[in-house]
Amino acid sequence: MARRLAAQAVAIGGMAFATMAPAQDRAVDEAIVAACFDTAPRGGITTDCIGLAARLCEDADRPTTVGTMSCTMAETAAWDAILNREYKATRDQFADMPGLSDTLLTAQRAWIALRDADCKFAYDRYDGGSMRSVAAGFCQMEHTARRALELKKMRGY
C-alpha cells in the first residue's frame, strides 16, 4: 500500500515522498480515520475530520516537512484502504444492474485522473519550495478521503 502511494506521489510532478518517508516513519491512529468515515452522514460529505489523524501524528513541538509528509502519507494510506473497500462494496451493490458497475469503473478512472491533475497542480504551484510536497500530499489525502465518502454516499441510495 505505501509503495503504491509513493509511486503515485512520484508520478505526480516528480514529488519525492518516497525518499522522505523512511527518514521519519510515522504512524497515525487508524481508529481516528475509521471514526471520521463511520460518523460521516450518508447523505452528505463531512470533511472536518480529514487530516485530523495526520495532525495528531505530527510532532507538535518540532514539526518538520518530513514529519508532516510522513504523517500525511500514513493517513492517506488509511483512507486508501477505506476507499478500496467502499469501491468494491459499491461495485458489488450495483452488479445486478446492467452496465452500472462498468460505468462506476469508468467514473473511478476519471476520478483518479482528476485527483492526479489536481495534486500535480498543488505541487507545481509552489515552484520548488518545500511546501509543494506538503500541499500535494494533503491534496492526495483529501481527494482520497472525499472519494471514499462519496462512494459511501452512493451506496446509500
Rank of each mutant, 00 (worst) to 15 (best):
M131A: 14
A27F: 09
A95G: 07
T144S: 01
S70T: 03
D92S: 01
G14Y: 00
D124V: 14
D96G: 14
A89P: 05
M1Q: 12
G43N: 12
G14A: 11
T39E: 10
R62S: 10
R4D: 12
D59S: 13
R3V: 12
D116P: 03
A122F: 11
L105D: 12
P63L: 00
R91Q: 09
N84D: 14
A117F: 04
W79C: 00
A122E: 13
I32A: 05
T106V: 15
C119N: 06
G137V: 03
A145K: 06
G99A: 11
R42A: 15
F17W: 04
D127K: 02
D59V: 02
V10S: 12
R42L: 15
A6M: 08
Y87T: 13
F138C: 12
I32F: 00
A7Y: 04
T19C: 07
Y126W: 09
Q108P: 07
T64Q: 06
C36V: 11
F37Q: 07
M1E: 13
Y123T: 10
A18F: 02
M1W: 09
M1G: 14
T103Y: 03
A7Q: 10
A136P: 00
F138N: 15
M131F: 08
G67S: 04
T90L: 07
A95K: 08
M97V: 15
A136I: 01
D25N: 12
L105Q: 12
K120D: 13
L5V: 04
R125L: 15
A95Q: 08
P41A: 06
A31Y: 06
L83A: 12
G137T: 05
A53S: 11
A6V: 13
A9K: 01
A21V: 13
A21H: 05
M141V: 08
S101I: 02
I12M: 11
R4S: 13
L105W: 10
A77P: 03
T90K: 04
F37Y: 12
G14H: 00
R42H: 13
R125I: 14
A122S: 10
A95Y: 02
S70P: 06
A9H: 02
R109L: 14
